[in-house]
Amino acid sequence: MVLMLFVIAFVCSAAVAGVFQMTKEPIEKAQAQKVVDALRKVLPEFDETSEKKSVAECGVYEAVLGGEIVGYAVESVSHNGFSGDVKIIVGFTTDGTIYNIEVLEQAETPGLGANMVSEDNVLVGSFVGKRAEEMNMTVRKDGGDVDALTAATISSRAFSEAVAFAYAAYLECAAENGQGGVDPSRLLPESDQIEEMELDGVAAYKALLGNEVVGYAVEGRSNSGFNGLVRVMVGFGVDGTIVDVAVLEQNETPGLGTKMCDEGNALVESLKGKSASGVKFALKVEGGDVDALTAATVSSRAYVEAVESAYETFKKINL
């Protein structure tokens, strides 16, 4: 009796092992093909991609065209889907624009959350073609810029969260390769040429108009954000006027500190157009000149500190 059962089990395992060997290669091929297909979809044209590397809990592929990095595809996961994980791959071009997004895995409700995989849905549409740094990646219900799928707020939230994770990983990689998430020209006075430069390990750009320097965009940072590092890029005219400020990196509280990334927020508005030499770099509540974000004093303080550090660097460059 035992022997018979043993024989049956043995023969069956042998058969399964045989099929496993047979299908091993096609399965690997199919899986690799799936990744390649997804990469082709979410990235601009490229020759080859790097091996997947792990950054900030996401998988990142660098896309190379003619020896130059033209984009990044980032695999990221949100564990807050309506039924399980939502895994997506997000393509970024080097200036931080979201090129396309593809859903790799989801088990959301068919007909509702599962619509995130369908062609031209509003959820993906509210990301594609946008510059990630200018977006608040939460759904409109939560005060963000993302159109949720009808009757699938939780799924849409998970999707947005996954995109935000991907963006964080992208920023880290882009920074490693010296590609910032911001186009310096929009921070600078009108110019016909922008030169990259570096001072004390800080990235900066020099703007020229007909051989004359008209301004500098300088990176500034502060480590005293609510959740660590806040990195900004500040554009100055040669006379020290603050042209504009862009946030390069932050991990602040969504809906509160993250407002520092929004267009026209209180922080930017109280700095824009002012002469930096005349600005007292502190919050109004602490005797300075800068309006803080509501309920985000710590984040606002870090922001101001980062702008001030950029100004210090600017003074060194613009002697």
Binding site: L5, A9, S13, A15, V16, V19, I27, A30
Partner: peptide, 21 residues
Amino acid sequence: PAYIVVISSFVTVVQLLMQAY
């Protein structure tokens, strides 16, 4: 148990084939 072993072997085979093709 014998039936279950036979059945589960075929299921695994189907699973592998579907995964591949």
